[in-house]
Amino acid sequence: MKTNNRFGMAAVSGFLVILAAVYLAPILIVLMNSFKGRFFISDTPFAPPNGQTFVGIDNYISGIAKTGFLQAFGYSLFITVFSVGAIVLFTAMTAWCITRVKSRASSLLYYLFVFSMIVPFQMVMFTMSKMANILHLDNPLGIIVIYLGFGAGLSVFIYSGFVKSIPHEIEEAATIDGCNPVQTFFWIVLPILQPVSITVAILNAMWIWNDYLLPYLVIGNTYKTIPIAVQYLQGGYGSRDMGAMMAMLVLAIVPIVIFYLTSQQYIIKGVVAGAVKG
């Protein structure tokens, strides 16, 4: 029985090692091809670079120049950081308020937010981008307002679920001690919400950093985020620079991998919490 078990464990481990290799292979193949000349990629993607095909970091240099990658990185970072900040602060305020104050307005708002979660983006993409245009929100600062509106559904929902589990007494004590609602929220409630705030921040950051269609429609003509810059390289079929494409894919993946490896435990916790609530 024991040897049988040990053999079984070895087989499982071997299987998982092979599977992990299969999982990592696509990324490693892209990395390898990013050092090959542009004409040696599409036909022989599995061949490692050799003396004839190796081009060093040329693809990175031409790709960064063609796509304006550094600017795109800046826009992506700016939009993601400030949108996530706005979502965390404002939806926490809203969720606490409409959960605690029982009124018709509160429950109407709550149901509208929940409803918005099931509406696919295509339903509003045209009218929303026109609205953004008319209200001059079609720039990296204005798009933060759009993200706040779109992120509100899931974020208010997650915060509300948590606020319901916080005992009233703490807030009532603060009120008796002379706090007004603003003081109560910022001194008492917001610190208690911290674990949920991490979940909300991670879920929204993953979404906004990778989002393509919304920024493409709202600001894509003037400001390219990373996914827009990569898609821009595609150009007409057959004419695209595969070398630059490989290099840009690598540059798009690297920040994500660094972020993942440094805050893995929060990401995984956040994803589980978000999934179970959603």
Partner: peptide, 8 residues
């Protein structure tokens, strides 16, 4: 923000 980007 919700009104501008979603509801309307």
């Amino acid at each position: 923000a919700f009104l501008i980007s979603f509801l309307i």
